[in-house]
Design a protein around this nucleic acid. Structure first.
Lengths: 202, 202
DNA sequence: TGTCGTTACATCGAATCGATACATCGACTG
DNA sequence: CAGTCGATGTATCGATTCGATGTAACGACA
């Protein structure tokens, strides 16, 4: 899950930890994000595995006063960071990560996993769906559709005899949300098919 | 979260671990449940704290062949377990838990927490909402309403400039789901108000 | 008779969370 | 112009939770 998030975000842009967390918070629905306590260890793990690499060395606070040349280095570093899309970055000690070829392979693997039962993971896979081939993307959506149909039927089976008011209300909400998700998915799938046909006709 | 789940389920019925997990799986939306790796430690913790207690001692497999009287004991135990609502229970070695007065207090505390940002936790709190007073229940729903309104506005603010197709699709889905949840909540709240007015008129 | 699926408890290592520590910087405030 | 506050940033700690695995009894079925 967290690997998918990191690799997906880094494919599009080189980023440092803090920024990674912020973007992920915007990607995931609700108030969900990931904690620093999982992010930093995950980055280390991925770096060890060679899936990501630190692009810019962290600028340590020099213990001795900066010489002119060092200050120049720092300015150059900041300029590079700014270029790479981190305008809001103030503060010192950033460690900017980028993805490697191995990381890109790993991302495709993660995006192609047959398991579509985890909601948060599926959300991330849609967010990075443009990195999949047309076929793989369509397959992802259709597998998800099957999953949701299964859930809907499970819910229907359980919504049998007269329950507690609030229990019943919850089932109602869940059913509505699944129906909604299915309609949304069908629109996505229709869009994909349309795109595929247009491609073939060229 | 897990404490809330355990205490809520045990308030309604004495249960053992395996059954607890199954029921929780039915309560939570999607394929979500909790793992044994968190359930059993949590039960131990709650037992130490005095919030739950083992109602029936586990029936250990006797190392020596059962005497007639022991077999009788076992049968009696099974009958008691069956009475307490565990019809499907076969197999040996169950440890049935019940809630204590302290546990009931703790449940009310958890149900009354002001934080309604966690989706799973909110679902559980609705599931056990009948254990709250009319006022507290209404407050829970209204706080959740405010939370969802905040999320909706956050989403709107972010759904600004032309993004990636799939990113846009995700935002669409999230917005729809929130709107759906809000409508559902409003129905719940209306129901509560109606009930309150009827009470006053008596 | 064997062996498969279900019921059931338990534990382990790894992943993750939530809190906290520490430090820098910009902006607002008295 | 010093002082504080909030945002930015990296990092680690203990507790929680997960996912996998082990063990075992039992019913069903071949």
């Amino acid at each position: 899950m967290i690997d998918l998030a990191i690799l997906g975000l880094l494919t599009e842009q080189e980023l440092h930890g803090y920024e990674l967390k912020k973007r992920l918070g915007e990607l995931l629905p609700g108030r969900a994000s990931i904690s620093f306590g999982s992010l930093y260890p995950a980055l280390s793990r991925l770096e060890t595995q060679g899936a990501v690499k630190a692009v810019e060395e962290r600028t340590a606070v020099p213990s001795s006063p900066m010489s002119g040349s060092l200050a120049g280095e720092l300015a150059a570093f900041r300029a590079r960071v700014r270029e790479s899309g981190l305008r809001a970055s103030t503060g010192r000690g950033k460690k900017v990560y980028g993805i490697t070829d191995l990381g890109r392979e790993r991302l495709i693997e993660l995006l192609s996993s047959p398991d579509v039962s985890d909601d948060r993971e599926f959300t991330l896979r849609v967010a990075f769906a443009r990195h999949l081939s047309d076929g793989a993307r369509l397959e992802l959506f259709e597998r998800r559709r099957t999953e949701l149909l299964g859930r809907r039927d499970d819910l229907r089976r359980r919504t049998a005899t007269g329950q507690d008011t609030y229990l019943g209300a919850l089932r109602e909400r869940d059913t509505e949300n699944i129906v909604n998700d299915l309609a949304w998915l069908d629109r996505l799938i229709a869009g994909e098919r349309h795109a595929l046909i247009q491609e073939e006709q060229q």
